[in-house]
């Protein structure tokens, strides 16, 4: 049972008080250019996900706090959360990730 910190309202809570929404920073192709989305691009957006061993950017909702969605960087091996950041903040560079940032 993990512990999360919501970067929107500052609450610290149990995993059960949040809801995980899967991979973060997905770009919905139809939102930008609905007429020019190929089947392959759509397929990747709908079904293809990273499954890294290591750092993973993912979406979480503060369901028992402020109700807002935010993003987090979690190490899928050690289960540590390395960062929590708001939806409007930039995605961290995982290749050069340093806990000091964000």
């Amino acid at each position: 049972m993990l512990v999360l910190h919501c970067p929107v309202c500052g609450i610290e809570g149990e995993e059960a008080d949040f809801h995980c929404g899967g991979e973060a920073h997905l770009v919905r192709p139809q939102s930008h250019d609905p007429e020019n989305v190929s089947d392959e691009v759509l397929r990747d957006y709908l079904y293809l996900r990273q499954n890294p061993r290591g750092l993973h950017c993912e979406m979480w909702q503060c369901t028992r706090g402020c109700g807002k969605w935010f993003n987090a960087v979690r190490d899928t091996v050690t289960m540590e959360f390395k960062a929590f950041y708001r939806m409007d903040q930039k995605a961290p560079d995982l290749a050069n990730f340093d806990e000091g940032q964000s």
């Binding site: 809801h19 929404g21 919905r28 909702q61 807002k68 969605w69 939806m87 409007d88």
Partner: peptide, 13 residues
């Protein structure tokens, strides 16, 4: 309700 919130907050804020 959660579906609406998800789209509003993450896609069309």
């Amino acid at each position: 309700a959660a579906w609406f919130e998800l789209w509003h907050q993450t896609e069309w804020p």
